[in-house]
Amino acid sequence: MRVTATGVSVSIDGAPILDEVSLTAAPGCITGLVGPNGSGKSTLLRCLYRIIRPQQGAVLIGDDDVWQVPARRAGQLRAVMAQDQELDNDYSVRDIVAMGRIPHQRLLERESSADRAIVDEALARIGIEWAQDRRFATLSGGERQRVLLARALAQDAPVLLLDEPTNHLDVGAQLELLDLIRELRLTTVAALHDLDHAVAYCDAVALLDQGRIVAAGEPVAVLTPERLAEVFGVRAAMTTHSLTGRPHLVFATGTSRPSSERYAHSEHANRAQ
């Protein structure tokens, strides 16, 4: 299912964060949101999953405006893995994955046999069924992210929204999680910090800077050395990874763009949020 943002603008405490941003995420593809700290990528993602309401513009999943439909319908349209999600660590892994079925249940309705089957399938598909009776608090960071991905899968939504899904994970857990996400082939929009992950795993990227999309399209066409120098203030080269054969970015410091210019908007946006 297609995700479309049109003319989205957001200001927080009078500070502009997004300025008429438009984005299209194609069905079944992974679209990465990349940019410096404070560029607006997480704010845009929060507009997509109904945390921050735009002052202007519209957000559609398929033909549904996510800000006009009931919350239950929005939950059926998109699943979310957000940063720093607050969960009761005393819940079991299975309990947390089963929360993904809530948008499909009526108020006070008990879990059905169909719900249980979907939860079983999600646990098995993500490879976390062995931990279903464990308390969430006892898992490692990578295992917790797998549980949250299984919950998103159990939600049975056509769209997956991810905010820095590899944050705080070691390199092995990062790659395992990204491989799992790619295998799902859901329409996915992900705010990503690691540009090399964006190049290797995304079908398309949108590069944000100072609240605007400066380029969008295939990763190798968007994340050029010239743009990375301008937006991030780094030298970069696009190569081919010797192990995977995928495009691979390498970086070095040293451009003519002043650091004060690069970080002024970032600091302003961070204070606003």
Rank of each mutant, 00 (worst) to 15 (best):
A173I: 03
G100L: 00
R134N: 15
L107H: 11
I12T: 12
A82I: 04
P158G: 05
D170C: 14
G245N: 05
V250I: 11
T6N: 07
E183D: 15
P27M: 07
S266I: 04
V147I: 09
D194I: 02
A191G: 10
D95V: 07
I96A: 00
E176D: 12
A215G: 11
D156M: 09
L60E: 00
L223G: 01
A173P: 03
E183I: 11
A122L: 15
P54G: 02
Q56L: 10
T31K: 04
E164A: 00
I102W: 08
G40K: 14
V222W: 03
S9G: 11
D170P: 11
A236W: 10
A131W: 06
R73I: 02
P225M: 08
H248I: 00
A198L: 10
V59G: 07
G57D: 09
P219S: 06
Q76W: 13
D194E: 04
V119Y: 01
P247S: 09
R185K: 14
G233R: 13
S260V: 14
S42T: 02
L149D: 04
D65W: 07
P158L: 08
R50I: 05
L87V: 13
D84P: 01
G38W: 03
P247H: 11
Y263F: 15
V189P: 03
D64T: 12
P27K: 09
P247R: 13
V10A: 04
S256M: 13
L123P: 00
I12S: 02
H268N: 13
L184K: 04
T240D: 06
G38L: 05
G245R: 14
V214G: 10
A206L: 04
L208E: 00
P54M: 02
V147C: 01
V10C: 05
E267L: 15
P225H: 08
D170F: 10
G254T: 12
D19K: 13
R212Q: 08
Q145I: 02
P225Q: 09
T138W: 08
A137E: 08
R78W: 12
